[in-house]
Design a protein around this nucleic acid. Structure first.
Lengths: 123, 123
DNA sequence: TGCCTATTTGGCATTATAGCCAAATAGTCA
DNA sequence: TGACTATTTGGCTATAATGCCAAATAGGCA
């Protein structure tokens, strides 16, 4: 891998890493419904406010969310809605994994290549 | 967040985490072109074979790739092609971030919500 | 069988991430 | 101004991820 290719994939990985946490995926899902202040999210998530704030800063640094301060509160929103497509495909993977465990329990070779075209799939 | 919601987002995060590494994203990109054995990937990536094998096992455990042994070699392939949609949206985020840095250098508030509908966008 | 090749796995050191508490910051309002 | 609220940040510890080497495994072939 040359330097240019490497840095392309590093940039991409930085975005994916920012999403790679259950709490942050939950936040993205929430923000898909509309703006939320940190206190709203803190309540729904049930973690320390400082923890929620840190998760938000990770998402913000990656450019996935944006924020606006109004009065005492800071409101966060999704900057790039196509992030929501991730969920669709992830669900397809999860469905596949469920079937795999059901059908080929313990088998090493996983031959089938699966299309996620069933529903909500953009592939 | 109740237990059920939590575990849904944990399952999703497990998939995203498996993708959250430059080498693994590169592998997914390569496999999109067709089957590859570990040695092919090792050569392209230029890392230790054991490192590449570990990355592949992460992807396999998440259900993103499948493998078949033929003779001495193990061939890997993408199980769920919609994973490729990730790249499209990630590129949109990267484009946005580039513009953000260009336009609002140093500004705190990032107001615009952006659609990635320009090209290759499935949102 | 014995040797070779491709791949995986154990073990370890290094680095990154997560989450909490406490302290700092910034805006509001009496 | 001073008290109060919402949020962020510093500092710390605990846990997870990464990458390498060396050893183990598994198939092929003389």
């Amino acid at each position: 891998m040359n330097q240019q290719t490497l840095s392309l994939f590093e940039d991409r990985a930085a975005i994916v890493k920012a999403l790679a946490h259950p709490t942050r995926l939950f936040i993205v899902d929430e923000l898909a419904k509309g703006e939320r202040c940190v206190c709203d999210l803190r309540e729904e998530i049930g973690a320390d406010m400082s923890t929620v704030s840190r998760h938000l800063s990770v998402l913000k640094k990656a450019g996935i969310v944006g924020d606006t301060k109004r009065g005492l509160q800071v409101f966060y929103r999704l900057r790039v809605p196509c992030i929501l497509n991730f969920f669709t495909c992830i669900e397809a993977v999860l469905r596949e994994n469920a079937q795999r465990h059901q059908w080929h329990m313990g088998e090493t070779d996983t031959v089938s290549t699966v299309s996620c075209s069933a529903k909500n799939c953009t592939s």
